[in-house]
Design a protein around this nucleic acid. Sequence first.
DNA 1: GAACTTATGTCGGTGC
DNA 2: GCACCGACATAAGTTC
Lengths: 96, 96, 96, 96
Amino acid sequence: MSEIGHNSNEILGDDEDDDIVASDQQLRLFIERIENLEGEKKAIADDIRDVYSEARSQGYDPKIMRIVIRDRKLQPQDRQERDAILDVYKAALGLI
Amino acid sequence: MSEIGHNSNEILGDDEDDDIVASDQQLRLFIERIENLEGEKKAIADDIRDVYSEARSQGYDPKIMRIVIRDRKLQPQDRQERDAILDVYKAALGLI
Amino acid sequence: MSEIGHNSNEILGDDEDDDIVASDQQLRLFIERIENLEGEKKAIADDIRDVYSEARSQGYDPKIMRIVIRDRKLQPQDRQERDAILDVYKAALGLI
Amino acid sequence: MSEIGHNSNEILGDDEDDDIVASDQQLRLFIERIENLEGEKKAIADDIRDVYSEARSQGYDPKIMRIVIRDRKLQPQDRQERDAILDVYKAALGLI
DNA sequence: GAACTTATGTCGGTGC
DNA sequence: GCACCGACATAAGTTC
């Protein structure tokens, strides 16, 4: 340890140190908020995985469940428009 | 078309219908549980994005924050091992 | 169904049909060009995977090789700046 | 600086140095092979991007082109099986 | 070793 | 006009 040092152990210091400490603290808070949120996110991701596992054990196919879920996210209108153009392209390529 | 119909409108039906309905219901519950969880997950992901935005507005670099956060997830021992090998590789390539 | 039909079976038709056919052909060419390029890209990706496999069989750690390769892509100046900020952040978090 | 040094400047040295140098050289070759391949891969990716751009300038929708291309990669049989189960699930959810 | 999930980088769209 | 923002595509990591 340095006796005087430019560290954070002084009770009374110069303003510059205060600024640095304040900044450090601010960054630390941002980081911790993010880490906490990531923790929550991971917990939910685990829950989702568990549900898929349970469904699989009941005979459902998770892969196809995912397709259904993805489809349900689309607005009916958007999907219809997309499908209309899609049909034109497929026809052009002899796919249908 | 069947005259009576093998659909879900009959008040009293055969057991097979009951089975189908039960199965449908089970799948629906799985799907809805997953969709709810995904909704929560997305909300948290949005929160994380907001924190990064706020940090950036305070002058912090989100890209480097991510590196720090990733690093903090590693066990000190693992990181040291990784860094040791990394140094060997860098030396071999004339990077240091 | 139209009597004469707006299809591609007529030997001699109207200009509109010609336009459609031309358009179809143009789209098809775009698609095929992309598919060919994607094929080449995949072949190279496979080659890369093979090199990593070979390196691993020689005792090298692919994960750390990737870090080195990523690092070598950075301009020396950029990397130094990044590392400088990184050190500040780590210090603020008591990581060093 | 060490007087004799464990570096690569000696013309004649011990076997251990030779081993290290040989190892360094091997790693370097792996890395360079990968970097070269990645360069080629990137060039092709750029070409693909250019084709999409050109197609867009001709009025085609790249997003939908991607869907078509993805679909063309599937084996007809696989897609049919998938679609069969998919229909069952969708029916259970009242999607169709 | 293959598939899926997450993370990162890029691109087009938008608002100031 | 640029810079932020969201979406998309790609690449990496992880799990089975």
